[in-house]
Design a protein around this nucleic acid. Structure first.
Lengths: 139, 139
DNA sequence: GTTACTGCAAACAGTTTGCATTACC
DNA sequence: GGTAATGCAAACTGTTTGCAGTAAC
């Protein structure tokens, strides 16, 4: 995810409006290295905008995802999580505490894709590597 | 997933009963190299048992998953899919047709885990590698 | 002033459960 | 006969939508 000014510019360029609610969400995501669910973000946003609705948070997350500014992570079957770091990296998912964490690169190196991003006829848009198990804190 | 007799034995050994409905589900899974959702399996089962309920299919899938005989794949945010092949292998997920397919081993080789299955303090129970994109047929 | 956003309330879809009846062993 | 499975109906949870009022530009 770009820095706030760049995001604001990108929204304006796309004919999207900048509201205080949206700005708060941008800031929450920017400072966040967890992998929050929509509801996590909503709860934090409530502290700043006590009247903000879940719908607004949800729709803003969708917009950011569609613009490619954040990633939606689908590893927790119970809910989607979001990641403001869009560079290639992988995740661990703890089935006890449901926390998603970044996997230090180097700890689990994965094959490079070919230059055209095609593997066996399949056009790869993203590679998701999830190590599912139990994290250090839950052990 | 083991062959049918072994599954039947495993169920009996665990105090679980063998019903015609369950046997049909075992057979559907055994012959299946797709990655069906619970509803897919339910629809096929209906052709054999016109009165079978979704609940029965659902609960049997849970039991099989808990026994480790099938895997639940969480890559499609809209629904869980199941895989009767429990050996290590990876998947492609087409965002257009929502088909999950096996990734030929060799096309995208992945790092081996250390012997103790621990990566950076995280105790790995399974590794899920998903190539998300557009499949050959949808291109 | 025009266009898009907010927030409410309700719809939606997949998943999960409680419970009476039925079937397995 | 005792125990577990089936199947119905309803609850549940996260996600998504329609729409009237409001705010950005």
């Amino acid at each position: 995810m770009k820095d706030i000014e760049a995001i604001v510019q990108r929204f304006r360029d796309s004919g999207l409006k900048i509201t205080p609610q949206r700005l708060s969400i941008f800031n929450l995501l920017k400072d966040n290295y967890d992998h929050p669910s929509a509801e996590d973000i909503y709860n934090k946003a409530l502290e700043i905008h006590p009247t903000i609705s879940f719908t607004t948070v949800y729709k803003t997350l969708q917009t950011l995802r569609d613009l490619g500014e954040i990633l939606e992570i689908n590893i927790d079957p119970e809910r989607a999580h979001y990641d403001s770091v869009t560079d290639d990296h992988y995740h661990t998912f703890c089935t006890r505490c449901r926390e998603i964490e970044d996997l230090m690169s180097g700890l689990y190196p994965v094959q490079e894709l070919p230059d055209n991003n095609v593997v066996g006829g399949f056009d790869v848009q993203s590679v998701q590597v999830h190590l599912v198990g139990v994290c250090g804190s839950c052990n």
